[in-house]
Amino acid sequence: MNYETYAPVLEKAKAALAKKNIPETAVSFCDVRMPAWMGKAFWFVSGVKRKMKRRLGK
């Protein structure tokens, strides 16, 4: 039902896109590297901050 309702919107969007000829970016999320320890360290620091705030009643 939704697809039929908005089919003309998609057609217009496709036509507008064709005119622009937009290149695909080479940047991919899969290529973003993040050492596992960074997430853990961030989690630890956020936890300490949360506890401090709670203790200070903020």
Binding site: T25, V27, F29, V32, M34, A36, M38, G39, F42, W43
Partner: peptide
């Protein structure tokens, strides 16, 4: 999901 969040921030920078 701190690791995912940091990766997203890095992705935004790369983009």
């Amino acid at each position: 999901f701190e690791g995912y969040y940091l990766k997203l921030k890095k992705y935004a920078k790369k983009l």
